[in-house]
């Protein structure tokens, strides 16, 4: 145990992986809270998939694997995907559910087309883009962690700055609008911040598992509290814990890939919270129901014994 702690601090690889995963957990935990409360959890899934063609196009334009342009491409593509999503939902008979699936799958398909085209064309850079699919948390280096910290820091600062506005937008958008807040602008800002979380997540857990990073911590935290501030802090903590646990487990057991391990750790937290959180926990509810049934049965038995009912 103490050896593990020492590795966590002094082992270059493990420290970066754990720090990067924890940062992702914190940022996606905070932004996921808003997404889940606004019932937009799956938007993150769509944004993550929609980012792939952006990464590929940025690579085709710049011809290099430099981080910043690729992340910018991912962000722009995610944003374009959101606009098309809104167009479909507002202008056609198709439901939001269908629109999410359509944008997700077609953008990703186009991304796969571009990715294989790039891989076919120049082998030298090949390994570079594939990592966004499954994420390569294990390959995070110090410069990645620094970029994560800057991106995440900016996102969290904006959340803090607009805390009241986002709160109002989340719980009563009509009221927010009537008070003169630009709800559309706020909504776009919040979605853009989720794009930032997705951009961090793509490199760590990859396209498919990003949904879990946004939804899991928030859904778990929601069970423990009814207060937004507490929920956000808890959600960030759950995200960070899952990130570190996943990093450590995959470090000690070589055959465990980091991204999936983080998600599985997170899933355990979610189900534990659903079962055991005070007040909302399903186990407690089951226990209360059982007690009530017993009390009721006893009461009926007493009434029968006393001849009040037959």
């Amino acid at each position: 145990m103490s050896e593990l702690l020492r590795d966590l601090i002094f082992d270059y690889t493990l420290r970066n992986v754990a720090l990067g995963s924890a940062l992702l957990g914190i940022v996606s935990g905070v932004l996921g809270s808003y997404a889940v409360l606004r019932r937009q959890g799956l938007l993150g899934d769509t944004l993550a998939h929609a980012a792939l063609p952006g990464i590929c196009i940025a690579f085709l334009i710049t011809g290099s694997r430099a981080q910043i342009p690729l992340l910018l491409g991912a962000g722009i593509a995610g944003w374009v995907g959101t606009m098309i999503l809104l167009l479909i939902v507002r202008r056609t008979v198709l439901s939001e559910d269908a629109a999410l699936g359509i944008v997700l799958s077609t953008f990703f398909g186009f991304g796969v087309l571009l990715l294989t085209f790039i891989n076919q064309r120049d082998d030298a850079n090949q390994a570079g883009l594939d990592k966004y699919l499954f994420g390569q948390a294990a390959a995070l280096i110090e410069s990645d962690v620094i970029i994560f910290a800057i991106l995440g820091g900016v996102a969290l600062a904006l959340v803090l700055l607009f805390y009241q506005e986002f709160k109002l937008l989340t719980f009563d958008p009509e009221f927010a609008g009537s008070l003169g807040f630009g709800t559309t602008k706020l909504s776009v800002l919040l979605t853009s911040l989720i794009v930032v979380a997705v951009v961090i997540g793509l490199q760590t857990v990859g396209v498919v598992l990003m949904a879990a990073m946004l939804i899991g911590p928030a859904a778990a935290a929601r069970q423990w509290t009814d207060r937004l501030g507490v929920m956000i802090v808890l959600s960030a903590a759950f995200g960070a814990v899952a990130g570190v646990v996943g990093a450590v487990l995959s470090f000690t057991e070589e055959r465990l890939p980091t991204g999936p391990t983080i998600v599985l750790a997170l899933t355990v937290i979610v189900f534990a919270s659903l079962a055991f959180a005070p007040a909302r926990g399903l186990v407690w509810e089951w226990w209360r129901r059982r007690q009530q049934r017993r009390a009721w049965a006893l009461e009926v038995a007493r009434l029968k014994a006393e001849g009040h009912v037959r």
Binding site: G41, G44, L209, L282
Partner: peptide, 18 residues
């Protein structure tokens, strides 16, 4: 305890990760 979207988003990544 969770809405439909979150329910989907909790289950399928867990299965895929597994």
């Amino acid at each position: 305890r969770v809405d439909a979207g979150a329910a989907i988003g909790i289950v399928f990544p867990a299965m895929f990760a597994l």
